[in-house]
Amino acid sequence: MTNQIIQAILLGGYYALIACGLSFMFSIMKIINLAHGSLLVLSSYLFWWLADSYAISPFYSLSIVIPIMMMIGWALQEFLLQKSARGGELLPILTTFGLAIVLENLLFEYFGADTRSLAPYIGDLSWESWQILTDIYVGKTSVYILLSAISLLASLQLFMQKTAMGRQIRATAHDPDTAGLIGINARKASAIAAAIALGTIAISGLAMSIRGVFDAYSGGPQLLFAFEVTIIGGMGSLWGVLLGGIVLAMAQTIGASIHPQGFLIGGHVIFFVILLARLYMANSVIAIRIKKVFGGLR
């Protein structure tokens, strides 16, 4: 039982990491990037390709893949999202969905149907673990993934609150026209936000390919996990992402213990339960009472 909870928290760290980019883009640019999963797979393939063809350790190739993904993010904003966001809130859904279809099929065409993993390229790390209690072991990679999720979320939070650029991005997110009036280059701020989002995708792509296998069409399920985490955690809150990841992983673990096929079902069910609770609690008496109690405490 304790073991299951610990493993679920570690898995939750992974979910938080893959949701980072989606949540960031959604809170800043108000766009749900349906190509999120496919871009994640693209970055995984980049790591795999660098390791396989040039024998570069995945941890060193972070310094190559992150800039590449950031440039893709800038291009994405400049050539696709910029134009489609002007056409209303529905258009970015369609263009990013189209991009996902194009990307995953191109990856399939280029890399074929074999599943890949980076585990063979990181030496012993892939199976090493720490013993934390007599009968409980935690995989080193899972711990590193959880730690990177926490540090990534913390640095994003700090960047957005403490730096001038972060403030400019937040101002643009709030009201691009007014931000423009006070001398902020809204276009540049959005491009930087998109580049940051894709940079985090590169990190989560590394996490995905180290802890398991992937193929060209792995993007869809990852997108759904990332989206569920974003909604469970409450939109716009970066720490909510961490909480959302852990809740999702817990629900999946409980689902799996109820039924052999219950892992994914558990995750989807908790998503709808929380969605429903949030929608119906919003104006209910209980919610107002809870607010009063907590408001009083503050």
Partner: peptide
């Protein structure tokens, strides 16, 4: 609304698919 509805429907499809498989 908007994108949340779009992808929320995808979650519905994934859930129904899993339930049918049961």
């Amino acid at each position: 609304r908007g994108g949340e509805f779009a992808i929320g429907m995808w979650v519905i499809a994934a859930l129904i698919h899993l339930l049918v498989n049961l």
